[in-house]
Design a protein around this nucleic acid. Structure first.
Lengths: 241, 241
DNA sequence: GGTCAAGTCTGGTCTATACCACTATAGACT
DNA sequence: AGTCTATAGTGGTATAGACCAGACTTGACC
């Protein structure tokens, strides 16, 4: 509720997180107006410039948007450029949706040539396959099949990935942080299995995505094939020259 | 060289562009240290907070990086190749396909509120609408509707855009170079008009794309709505953290 | 010569204040 | 009733000053 001026955490970061929590908890809804900068400044006993520092960060992340002369509002936009490299769980969390998963398959297999090429590992070397149905607020959104090299993250499958975020485990347990990705997106009609899992009535459009994720050292972390429901998912990308 | 306090362009944007120009011209090299914030502040006669505003923008864009207690430095990765920001013609050329277009509509209209918002221009101001059917090797691939502010490129429509690349004209005639874009992609079923133009037999999947393109100064160059044939087009994107 | 301490410079954080252009509204005027 | 006009409120920009922790330089001291 309150900000702590003695904390080593800067005030503008504290305020930023406080606002995010309020949005997550549903105390602030999309298109709700925030208190004005001057009000927030008085309310939390900090200067307006510090308030602005917090708000501008959130605007840059797409959580808020501003209208000069009117006020600052909570965005509806789900996915912003900065979150492009987060996993499904993080994306859903940001969008204020409950992310969950149903694990369809979780095994270790020898790398088929195609997958080995994507992962840049020798053919037939150990590859972890994790196939999950992704849900947001209990409604199916995507089928995701991730391939990871067993060398990079042995024992990965000891986790229960129906609850846990893959990216969180990679980061916290193996120190693997994605920093770039090459992605291919195309539209297609859902096949029978996809329609069944995603609870679609054919004909229905889906978004097929392939993604190769790398860390700072340019090592391939994962190769993912995803199929998203066309009506429930939009893909945002920020491109730079 | 100097900053103009009377300009409608904010000082921090002016400084930001000035620094970018210096880097582009090679007056500042990767890993060079910039003058300290206090020096820049004195040098250009603006306050340190304004200098910081410019620097922080560039840090966020990856042009600069900072080291607390040491200084601010030029990043190495400024001019990374990314083909994502080229127009349709350039993309096709790279894929070794003959690009052509059929102009479906080319007019000037008053900006509807939605389009005005995307272009960040006043409602009802003059907007150029250019709707084209895009072909690769004479086969239809996409329907593209571009909106541009008439202020930025008056007389744009004197060109015959069935032959000429829009991006080429913008660059060569108006000096407008896209450097960033925010893009939204989703899958959908083709409607009747789309199916007819794209020569599809329903039901068929299409890729819908919206894109807002900006130049270095963050001015919106164009807002484009595109519909691609799902079976003939894949969308590539390179993402960076 | 090597070590440590003081001092200086850096970016990071924060305050307080000011003016601008724009938006909305309440009230006066027609 | 409809229309204009102050006016108050908003975010956007900009200034000037302050303190902090961390990185460096310098010089006194052993």
């Amino acid at each position: 509720m309150e900000l702590n001026a003695n904390s080593p955490i800067p005030l503008y970061i504290q305020l930023k997180e406080l606002l995010v929590r309020q949005i997550r908890r549903g105390e602030l809804h999309p298109h709700d107006r925030l208190p004005s900068e001057r009000e927030l400044s008085e309310q939390y006993g900090i200067s307006r410039m510090t308030v602005r520092q917090a708000l501008q960060l959130l605007v840059k992340e797409g959580v808020l948007y501003t209208a000069a002369g009117k006020g600052t509002y909570v965005s509806e936009v789900l996915f912003e450029q900065d979150h492009a490299l987060t996993g499904f769980s993080e994306q859903m969390q940001r969008a204020n949706l409950r992310a969950s998963s149903r694990v369809l398959e979780a095994t270790v297999i020898p790398a088929a040539p195609y997958v080995a090429g994507k992962l840049e590992v020798p053919p037939h070397s150990g590859v972890i396959l994790l196939k999950r149905l992704r849900l947001a607020n209990e409604k199916p959104i995507a089928i995701e099949t991730a391939y990871l090299s067993q060398n990079l993250c042995p024992d990965l499958l000891k986790h229960d990935f129906s609850q846990v975020s893959l990216y969180a485990v990679l980061r916290e347990e193996y120190g693997l942080v994605p920093t770039s990705a090459l992605q291919v997106v195309e539209a297609a009609l859902a096949n029978v299995e996809e329609a069944r899992l995603l609870e679609l009535h054919p004909p229905a459009a889906v978004l097929r995505m392939e993604r190769v994720t790398r860390n700072v050292q340019d090592v391939v972390l994962e190769y993912v094939e995803s199929v998203y429901r066309g009506d429930r998912y939009k893909f945002y990308a920020h491109l730079r020259a």
